[in-house]
């Protein structure tokens, strides 16, 4: 039988190592920390939604814009080429969401 201290350590380790991949606001004071390459999964998850942008509610669009903003620092840390390509791509996604949000709010 494992000691309670070992179980606590295992649980603590699970908490610490599982969150940075998806990001957790409470642990990082509002900013999102992405594990290496996890940024790409988040980038794809966000930018795969541009085709359906018109179907989202203003709240969903605002959430996507926030996710873009949270992802930007992770992309800024990439090497020069990747940074140039993916910042541009992220900017296109973000601006589309802002555009659609604006059009919905102006209706």
């Amino acid at each position: 039988m494992k000691k309670p201290g070992t179980i606590f350590l295992l649980l603590a380790a699970a908490v610490v190592f599982s969150f940075p991949v998806t990001g957790i606001n409470s642990l990082t004071g509002g900013s999102v920390v992405f594990a290496q390459e996890a940024w790409k999964g988040e980038f794809e998850a966000i930018c795969s939604k541009t085709q359906d942008a018109m179907t989202f509610s203003p709240e969903e669009l605002k959430d996507l814009i926030t996710r873009c903003d949270n992802l930007k620092p992770a992309i800024e840390k990439l090497d020069e080429t990747q940074r140039k390509v993916y910042l541009k791509r992220l900017q296109l996604c973000r601006e589309l969401f802002v555009f659609v949000l604006g059009s919905k709010e102006n209706r």
Partner: peptide, 9 residues
């Protein structure tokens, strides 16, 4: 073009 090529740039 999709959407984001034209909007909002």
């Amino acid at each position: 073009n999709g959407c984001e090529l034209c909007h909002p740039e």
